[in-house]
Amino acid sequence: MTVRLLAPAQAELDEAIAWYAEQAPGLGETFLIETLKAIQLIEQHPQAWHPLTMYIRRCRLRRFPYSVVYTQDGTDILVLAIAHQHRKPLYWKTRLN
């Protein structure tokens, strides 16, 4: 099973890392590590997290107010968004099309 990030999801991840890096030394790296751990857990147990729709699920990060929004694409995982939990709910829905 492989994990792919849509280009907008990768951009969101990069922006969040940069923002946290500006807040405190090492915080951007901490955010990246936690995001990668969540993605690894999703890869191991793709059905374990909260379903948002019939095909889309969300895995919340523990320390940061972000979620990894993903779907299964055959045997692969497609990350639709690295979404801030307090901004624009469901803005990423059109990315699946």
Rank of each mutant, 00 (worst) to 15 (best):
M1K: 08
M1T: 01
R4G: 04
R4P: 00
L5R: 15
L6W: 08
A7M: 08
A7V: 13
A7D: 13
P8L: 14
P8G: 13
Q10P: 00
E12P: 08
E12H: 14
L13Y: 02
L13A: 11
L13K: 07
D14P: 01
D14T: 12
D14A: 14
E15Q: 12
A16V: 01
A16Q: 02
I17G: 02
A18N: 04
Y20K: 05
Y20C: 02
A21H: 07
A21V: 00
A21T: 05
E22M: 10
E22C: 06
E22S: 12
A24P: 00
P25V: 00
P25N: 00
G28R: 04
E29A: 11
T30V: 04
T30S: 15
T30I: 02
F31K: 06
L32H: 12
I33N: 10
L36E: 08
K37V: 03
A38S: 06
A38F: 02
I39N: 00
I39K: 01
Q40W: 02
Q40N: 11
I42G: 10
E43M: 06
E43I: 00
Q44T: 09
H45Y: 14
P46K: 09
P46I: 04
P46N: 05
P46F: 05
Q47N: 15
W49K: 11
W49D: 15
H50I: 15
H50V: 15
P51Q: 15
L52G: 04
L52M: 13
Y55I: 07
Y55V: 11
I56L: 09
I56S: 06
R57C: 04
R58D: 10
R58K: 15
R58Y: 02
C59V: 01
R60V: 03
R60N: 12
R60Y: 06
R62T: 10
F64H: 01
F64W: 03
F64A: 03
P65N: 02
P65S: 03
Y66S: 02
S67R: 10
V69Q: 06
V69G: 07
Q72I: 06
Q72H: 08
Q72R: 13
G74A: 05
G74F: 06
T75S: 14
T75P: 15
T75Y: 04
D76G: 05
L78H: 03
L78Q: 12
V79L: 07
L80R: 11
A81F: 13
I82M: 15
A83M: 05
A83C: 10
H84D: 04
Q85A: 14
R87C: 05
K88P: 09
K88R: 14
P89I: 09
L90G: 06
L90H: 13
Y91F: 13
Y91N: 09
Y91S: 12
K93M: 12
K93R: 15
T94S: 14
L96T: 08
